[in-house]
Nucleic acid binder design. Structure first.
Lengths: 233, 233
DNA sequence: AAAAACCGTCAACCGTGTTGGCATAAGCTT
DNA sequence: AAGCTTATGCCAACACGGTTGACGGTTTTT
């Protein structure tokens, strides 16, 4: 059992691929991300990824145990991109806001990948570093550990939850996306004031807000709450 | 083109299935939900659904245009279950909290279905009724329309986002779930205080909170914020 | 120089969604 | 009641998905 996958560090490259490409774990992940971006969630398959890399599909199993393992690697790359270049400023509130918006933004930049990965725990380097950073911000702001952990959890869950939700609507296959919008125009906007007075009355406002994310507002609420805890403590 | 699917209302049953079953759209959705529950997200396939119903897989295409269409029907059933029996009490805050918790709970009761559907707009009856109800609560509480819409959006997004996030970890295939927990034990809990002082210091607290949802807390924050808007207005 | 490890390739397996043609029973018309 | 129409279930087939096991050439180690 226990499928053998040589860890990247022990890997000493041998054969170039038939098309002359020399594979790397990193190169595979980058290519997978690009394919997700260009061809949508359904567009990333082991076989197509093989073609894109100029390698046989089965080769990928030398680098990842399977689809799930590859997914986790993508997840970590996404967080890595979000946090690249980040540094603590010392202002806990600004720092936390920055981290949250970075993650949210990075996920929305790769909606298909975000949907795939937002709820997984990769345990890889970038993810761990991010968690360490968030806890560091809260603890050095002066929150006692139990509060720090509570806020940490609310913060990371809120951020990932919204990232996933907002990404999801961007990541829908074109057909489904069109279907959803069509449903809106054909159904919600047409409801009679008699049967659905509240929707009918607010329909224009609903449409106007439809494409905005509620994340920034909600994040601010969470920061307020953390600040209150800090003052009370 | 425009695949022909006879709407449920116009449907006049004709042939029973080879196994003597008489199909209904509702029966199909219920069975799909049960299969998701029993066999996990990967366990629901057109073919297996066919077997479970005692019908040929292709028969399902007489009822749904395809997998996506079936997904939307499941989504609506889920919301329907959440709101079944709900009535407004007149206390906007209690009502909103109730609706939020109902949805969150219903989704967690069917995590696999929740993951599948939380980010889709079905436009079907139950979904519309729920939106109408939420807007009704906010508007009759006295919020001006623009505020009502803003709070509505934050509320529904927050609720669905957390429902999806919390459901996701419950819905992971057993293998992935075990992998995630193993990652935790093997990685996070073992980090050295030298390299990761904040995680190391709070590890026990992190573990203790890991299985709680941050939704109720966050929802209260949102309700506070709405109350503040109401008083200011 | 021989042995071992690595790793790309090939062919095959089985499961998936979906489609088009066919058969047949239910309902409608008379 | 007889016949016509059509809804609807079934079958066989297709293309495509992930994954595996055997093979063989290359590089590293001994």
């Amino acid at each position: 059992m226990a499928k053998k996958v040589v860890p990247e560090t022990d890997r000493r490259r041998r054969k170039p691929t038939k098309q002359g490409v020399v594979l790397t774990e990193e190169m595979i992940v980058q290519t997978a991300l690009r394919m997700l971006h260009e061809h949508g969630r359904e567009g990333l398959t082991v076989r197509r990824l093989g073609v894109a890399l100029g390698a046989d599909p089965s080769t990928l199993y030398r680098y990842f145990r399977g689809t799930d393992d590859l997914t986790l690697a993508i997840a970590d790359e996404l967080i890595g991109r979000a946090m690249r270049g980040w540094e603590a400023s010392g202002d806990w509130r600004a720092d936390l806001r920055d981290v949250g918006l970075r993650i949210h933004t990075a996920y929305l930049n790769h909606p298909e990948a975000a949907v795939l990965t937002a709820n997984r725990v990769s345990g890889r380097a970038n993810e761990i570093a991010t968690d360490e950073a968030i806890l560091g911000i809260l603890r050095s702001a002066g929150l006692p550990d139990p509060d720090a952990v509570r806020v940490y959890q609310a913060f990371i869950d809120l951020t990932l939850a919204f990232a996933a939700l907002d990404a999801a609507s961007l990541a829908l296959p074109e057909a489904a996306r069109a279907a959803d919008e069509e449903v809106w125009r054909a159904t919600y906007a047409q409801l009679s004031p008699e049967t659905h007075p509240n929707i009918a009355a607010t329909a224009p406002l609903l449409v106007a807000r439809m494409n905005d994310s509620a994340y920034p507002t909600t994040l601010e609420m969470l920061l307020d709450s953390a600040a209150a805890t800090l003052e009370a403590g």
